[in-house]
Amino acid sequence: MSGARSLKQLPWRRWSIALHRDIGYLAVALTLAYGISGVAVNHRADWNPSYRIAKQFVAIAPITATAVPEMVANAVMQLGLPTAPMNSYRPDPQTLQLFYRAKVYHVDLPTGKVMVESTVPRRVLYELNQLHLNGPKHAWTYIADLYAVALILLAITGLFVLKGRLGITGRGGWLTAAGTLIPLGYWFVYLRLG
């Protein structure tokens, strides 16, 4: 009897609200980062969320040299490039690729047609995606774990912020059930149809 009373006297709701509020503040930046990156990465079948890839075409004279070093020197000279490439590669007998930092020159040797492919990281999105996909590894793995725990705490403490009609015993309960049905329903339908 006295145990039940002391449990009732515990200010657990105050603690829950305080946790919810402060974790919420701490998690704002990460939630925005993960949310924005999440949308971007979800659609990566349609676009590259981290890089902007631009293709340009230029024309030079056909290259008839048979030795690779001569081909490379000729292409570099004709394209007016200031330095030798980091690497070169021939994927097939009529193509020479010259690799520079963030740029690849695809030279069609018989025609002299050159495709210049530039790869530039998208501003902000690149960094957000790196964090979201745990590119840095190491310490970031644990920060992301902590963030995941913070989200779990936010979800649980969020259930008990309000009392009464709008709380978990009223409208909040219905909304929570509706939200639970989304993944459960999708999972069920996906399994049935898939």
């Binding site: 590259n48 981290s50 890089y51 890839i53 690779v68 490439p85 980091m86 690497n87 590669y89 021939r90 994927p91 097939d92 007998p93 690799f99 520079y100 930092r101 963030a102 690849v104 790869t119 990281p121 996909l133 745990n134 590119g135």
Partner: peptide
């Protein structure tokens, strides 16, 4: 010439950036 070998890693375990293209 004309030869290449695909190096496959587990998704997400290693993520090669596009900027690695052309490097050794």
């Amino acid at each position: 010439e004309f030869e290449a070998l695909r190096f496959k890693v587990q998704d997400g375990v290693i993520v090669f950036p596009l900027s690695a293209k052309g490097k050794t």
